[in-house]
Simulated scan of single mutants.
Amino acid sequence: MDRTRVIDPRDLELEEWSQGSLYGGLDVRLGALLGLRNLGIAYSEVAPGKSGCPFHNHHVEDELFVILEGEGTYRIGHERIPVRAGHVLGAPAGGPDTAHQLINTGSVPLRYLSISTKAATEICEYPDSGKFLAKTIDPETGKYRFNQMVSEGDSIDYWHGEPGA
């Protein structure tokens, strides 16, 4: 399969999305376009006052953000750190102390790259809302085999649905 090896995100069609009053942006995933199988890369633009994702942490995947333009607040663990163009931010896999979120606190769009390891199986935790996301991705197709969000307290017995149990 022939893949492009050099991409300028400004030349790509960005997907616009929004959720409620805090979340929204323009995004494009670059990893597959570059032929990368084990590295996720996305280019994002987030409007002033918005965030591109809820406060969350990964239990398996490491993430890195490169701020290209604008300024914002990097919420990581219990800290809130001002960030601007040129800053590189790390979000290692771990527990709630590595939960992270970028919020555009500036007056122009916050533009950044998100780079992450890609695990076939991942657990994400959302400390603000008490949710967990469990997902498994087929490494050949890149499509979800399992993608389930659950809340703390919502549980089923280990043997639920097992034949003969």
Score class of each variant (00 low, 15 high):
D138H: 01
E152A: 13
E45L: 12
A119I: 00
L36W: 08
D62L: 08
G52Q: 02
P82R: 07
V46S: 07
D62K: 04
G94C: 09
E79H: 09
E125R: 14
L110I: 03
D27S: 13
W159P: 02
P127C: 13
P127K: 07
E71I: 04
I137S: 02
E162F: 08
I76K: 10
F132R: 14
G49D: 03
A85R: 01
H59L: 14
L12T: 08
Y126R: 10
K143D: 08
H100D: 04
P163Y: 10
D157I: 00
R84N: 02
F55Q: 03
Y144A: 13
P92Y: 00
Q101F: 04
I103G: 08
S51D: 08
K50A: 11
Y23M: 10
P139K: 00
F55M: 15
H87D: 14
G130Q: 05
E45A: 15
N57C: 15
G153W: 06
L22Y: 13
T136S: 13
T136V: 15
S18V: 05
G130C: 04
G161E: 00
E122V: 06
M1V: 09
D11F: 01
E79K: 11
P109I: 09
P9W: 08
G95R: 10
L22F: 14
A47N: 09
T98L: 03
L110H: 13
Q148K: 15
R10N: 12
D97C: 07
E13L: 07
A47H: 06
H58R: 03
I103E: 13
V28S: 03
T141R: 05
S114H: 03
L64V: 15
I156D: 10
A134M: 12
N147S: 10
G49R: 03
I41E: 04
K135P: 00
E140Q: 09
G35Y: 00
K131S: 02
L113A: 05
L89Y: 05
I103Y: 04
L33Y: 04
K135E: 12
D2W: 08
A91P: 01
I67Y: 07
V108Q: 14
L39P: 00
G40I: 04
G164S: 10
I137G: 03
E71T: 09
A91N: 02
S18N: 13
E125H: 13
G20Q: 04
K131G: 01
V66M: 12
L110Y: 11
L34V: 10
P82D: 08
V6Y: 10
G164T: 01
E71R: 14
D154Y: 10
V6R: 09
R145F: 01
I7C: 02
N38Y: 14
V150I: 15
P54D: 14
G77I: 11
G94I: 06
Y144W: 10
S129C: 07
R5K: 13
N104D: 07
G86I: 11
G40V: 06
S18H: 12
L33D: 05
S21D: 13
L36T: 02
G31Q: 09
I103F: 03
I123N: 06
G106C: 06
G25S: 04
P163H: 13
A120R: 03
E152H: 06
H56D: 05
S155A: 15
T73K: 11
E16D: 12
S107W: 02
M149K: 11
P127S: 09
R75T: 03
P139D: 02
M149Y: 09
K118F: 11
R84T: 12
